[in-house]
Design a protein around this nucleic acid. Structure first.
Ligand SMILES: [Zn+2]
Ligand SMILES: [Zn+2]
Ligand SMILES: [Zn+2]
Ligand SMILES: [Zn+2]
Lengths: 145, 145
DNA sequence: CGCTTAAAGAGACTGTGTCTCGATAAGTAT
DNA sequence: ATACTTATCGAGACACAGTCTCTTTAAGCG
């Protein structure tokens, strides 16, 4: 990632390095706030503005992708997916791969004069563990008294 | 939608009605802020809190679905199509058909132990007219010297 | 009509993301 | 190594979304 930044003409600074380390060490989905917190461990003066600037730079070079999530924006390394299985039981979100499949509709969109910049596929349902749980408390409806 | 709320045990108030009207009259994708603005046209004292409360109630009854978008959260009626071309220029949203195509990934999700209840495909980009406009202000590159 | 209580509205509060500005240090040329 | 240029920095102001609390209001019902 660092090389990528440098090649694109960005300077490599302490702050940027801290952000990179945070991204590498942190979870697959990170929020800007998390990056800031993690980054401060290696660069005590790291500022919020720098975090956003660096994330933006990384996004511009294609190393990172910002993606909307139920609570704010999260960043994922481009190697990760943008297709989500959203569990309606526990609220958990997991990625799954499927770009090859969903690319099929891109031509459909373009046939309508639309130029595609990106897409988001949200699949709603129940995850494995929630489905098993569901079987247990079947009777109690989701009714309001 | 109103019946749905009532059946679930919610009271039908002026504020709620204003929100419902806003949702029916407004665009396919609306933000909470938009609902508030639209709703104030029919209920001058409508408050932000009420908007959020009503949206939450509608979501709970399954009449509405909140979904993360590149800029904030937007709400869509569940009865509407679930394949959208969202223009990042003018904000316009148009449906397009593609279920036949996107159903291909359902087995993929189920292979992960996930039971699919529904899905939503959001395609972001530029509509025809916005793209033509874009051509005009090309020169100002987003390039880094 | 009057009671009960869900719901309303106002506004404080938190957190995210943007922006500006003077200070700093990265890269480069001497 | 030193000095210079300028991208980048950190701090803090700002705008806005969303949540929460508290007091008042009105929906639904007998
Ligand atoms: Zn679950
Ligand atoms: Zn895809
Ligand atoms: Zn457009
Ligand atoms: Zn579909």
């Amino acid at each position: 990632m660092e090389t990528r930044l440098k090649d694109a003409g960005y300077r490599i600074t302490q702050s940027r390095r801290a952000v990179l380390r945070a991204l590498e060490g942190g979870p697959a989905h990170v929020s800007a706030a998390q990056v800031l917190a993690l980054g401060r461990k290696t660069c005590k003066t790291l500022s919020r503005a720098s975090v956003y600037r660096t994330l933006e730079a990384l996004e511009a070079t294609g190393a990172l992708r910002a993606l909307p999530s139920p609570d704010g924006r999260v960043y994922v390394r481009v190697t990760d997916g943008h297709h989500h299985l959203v569990c309606q039981g526990c609220g958990d979100v997991q990625d799954f791969d499927g770009c090859a499949l969903c690319n099929a509709w891109a031509p459909v969109a373009e046939a309508e004069g639309f130029s595609v910049a990106g897409h988001l596929l949200e699949v709603f349902g129940l995850c494995k563990s929630c489905r098993e749980e569901e079987v247990v408390h079947v009777s109690e409806g989701s009714e309001r008294s």
